[in-house]
Design a binder for these strands. Sequence first.
DNA 1: CGACGGCTGGACTGTCAAGTCCAATCAGCG
DNA 2: CGCTGATTGGACTTGACAGTCCAGCCGTCG
Lengths: 204, 204
Amino acid sequence: MSTTASTKQGRETRERIVRAAAALMGQNGASATTLDDVRAATGVSKSQLYHYFGDKRGLVEAVVEHQCATVLGLQTHALAAVSSWEDLERWADLMVAIVEEQGARGGCPIGTLAAALSDVDEELRTSLSEAFRAWSDAIRGALTRLRDTGQISVDADLDALTTRMLSAIQGGLLLAKTSRDANQLRVALDGAIAQLQASARVRH
Amino acid sequence: MSTTASTKQGRETRERIVRAAAALMGQNGASATTLDDVRAATGVSKSQLYHYFGDKRGLVEAVVEHQCATVLGLQTHALAAVSSWEDLERWADLMVAIVEEQGARGGCPIGTLAAALSDVDEELRTSLSEAFRAWSDAIRGALTRLRDTGQISVDADLDALTTRMLSAIQGGLLLAKTSRDANQLRVALDGAIAQLQASARVRH
DNA sequence: CGACGGCTGGACTGTCAAGTCCAATCAGCG
DNA sequence: CGCTGATTGGACTTGACAGTCCAGCCGTCG
């Protein structure tokens, strides 16, 4: 079938392919990277690609899953450690630093895939949408902690604040990547955090 | 050369091609739409594509220019009419309504192109970055008007607020398109506007 | 050991897409 | 009208890419 990998060796090969494919697709886009590109980057043979992924769409699907898992792993881990404003700012600084050190290229792997695939493949769109939802949950978890420790007002709309935060991340990353200026992300995130801090006080 | 179109008829043909290509590339992505797709959608012959655009990259370039001009035309026009909070909310409502009526598909033409092309073609990246800058200028113009009429504090950081607004637009559109839910854009824009209104009062 | 099944190599095919070329129109102008 | 250059039609070439096929390899387990 498409996703065979029972041996340890098999799983490693599969993993190696997915990683390389993810990098190539992140750079050039999913539809612009060819199976031969992946082959060249990994030294793997044609039949291996079809052995592990069935067809190109299967590979793209594996890349989507891999990128979602990677980003969510990092994000849920980092956000789980947030319980103060300083923590939240450190988390923001971390994202800006990552973007900076790649020369403001690439942007968010999930965001890039979402922009390219949402209108093309309904199933992949659903996976990516689900990933955004999971990311939102992680953010909302951090905000809930801030609220429960009295740092955000109890009648703040956490769902809305969460969506705004994720919008700021995605929008900021897109602007940063397009202008090659990580500062755009910096400003967007600062704004979202400032808005959270504004809701530390009860409104109206 | 690549961009020949001296006759009126020629300009119309060129325009028709660009429009169709923009629609196709918006739907399927630039690299996934073939010249034959464009040909089929327009009833134009192969040589016409090469006559007017030189090669495929030339067509993509024309599409980028067209989409930037279209979006900026709408945005600068709409934003130039903004001189009160109600106007700003109407502007936001308009964007949400547009997204809604397309079933939350497609997102921002500029944003989609930027996500796909920024890491691929430096010249196109520059054009798209420039478009974002022009869009920012239009937003900043509206905010400046609000400040000059006393609706925003004089010591508000308009540049930062502008970047946050554009981030909210782009992030909100991406989330909306991925989840097929225009409400995500709604929430993101409401947040950005709320933050502006918060800076109506002098801070700290 | 022997055989089974996952794994790998790589040649091969069919299709499709970019780009070329040349001849045929067509529009405007002296 | 007759000329010039823009415009158009469409066949053709070339290369690349997705996908197929089969033979050989290698680890594992009875």
